[in-house]
Design a protein around this nucleic acid. Structure first.
Lengths: 124, 124
DNA sequence: CGGTATCCCTGCTGATACTG
DNA sequence: CAGTATCAGCAGGGATACCG
């Protein structure tokens, strides 16, 4: 939360909601593989802990991006799915994916920066 | 860094680079108001401290998203500007901006969630 | 299964002071 | 001006254990 102060730029609030920690893989998994249970998400994301997964799912549910359905069976069952509002993020995610080829450029920039810095390239 | 593990979804690395803390307002300011000095950025973002601003600018410079120019004058002058790679984020930022009307829906979702929770709506 | 509760610990942040 | 250095404080995340 409050990842980037809104006074600085108008898109900061959107970033706070959509790109706060763990939300991207969660929304992606729900969008990609559809409605699924808690454990499925847990296994798919792998490095997330149940506590944090719960926190993030609650947050996403509160923001209306994710729908939670509870089945009072034994053993209990809960299913999560992306909401319509969540699906409206599609174009945004597509824009992300379209930019990803530039990751190579970033990698290259990092390497040459590191070389420059190692040899004391900075003037100040 | 490592805001969202890449094993979970392919767009996570992009998010790590572009939407890590403070990078959005910085890139936005540089993109919106053009080439400017350290203090200008500092004043524009207001709540950022010089230490953190320096950190983030270095990171963005290393990633090739921002260009730094040092003028060895007295007093010294440094100017920052967005790189071509940084400008290539334009469509992404536009997609963000296009989604921002949905913030109202999020706000509404939060309110009704909070009402539901206050009255003990959750079954589990 | 689908979570909570607990503790710990890292990393970000803020404040302050100092320098070329 | 444009930083760097240092220290303290704290929220959030990870690991582990437990519960309906």
């Amino acid at each position: 939360m409050d990842i980037s102060p809104s006074n600085a730029c108008p898109i900061a609030p959107v970033v706070d909601i959509v790109f706060s920690r763990w939300t991207t893989p969660i929304l992606w998994a729900l969008n990609q593989y559809g409605r699924q249970r808690f454990v499925e998400l847990e296994r798919r994301i792998a490095t997330i802990t149940p506590k944090v997964l719960t926190q993030r799912l609650r947050q996403l549910e509160r923001d209306g991006l994710v729908l939670r359905t509870y089945y009072p069976e034994v053993p209990p069952r809960v299913e999560y799915e992306i909401s319509e509002l969540g699906r409206s993020l599609g174009p945004l995610f597509a824009a992300l994916a379209e930019w990803s080829p530039n990751l190579d450029t970033v990698e290259q920039a990092r390497r040459s920066y590191d070389v420059r810095e190692r040899s004391g390239g900075r003037s100040t």
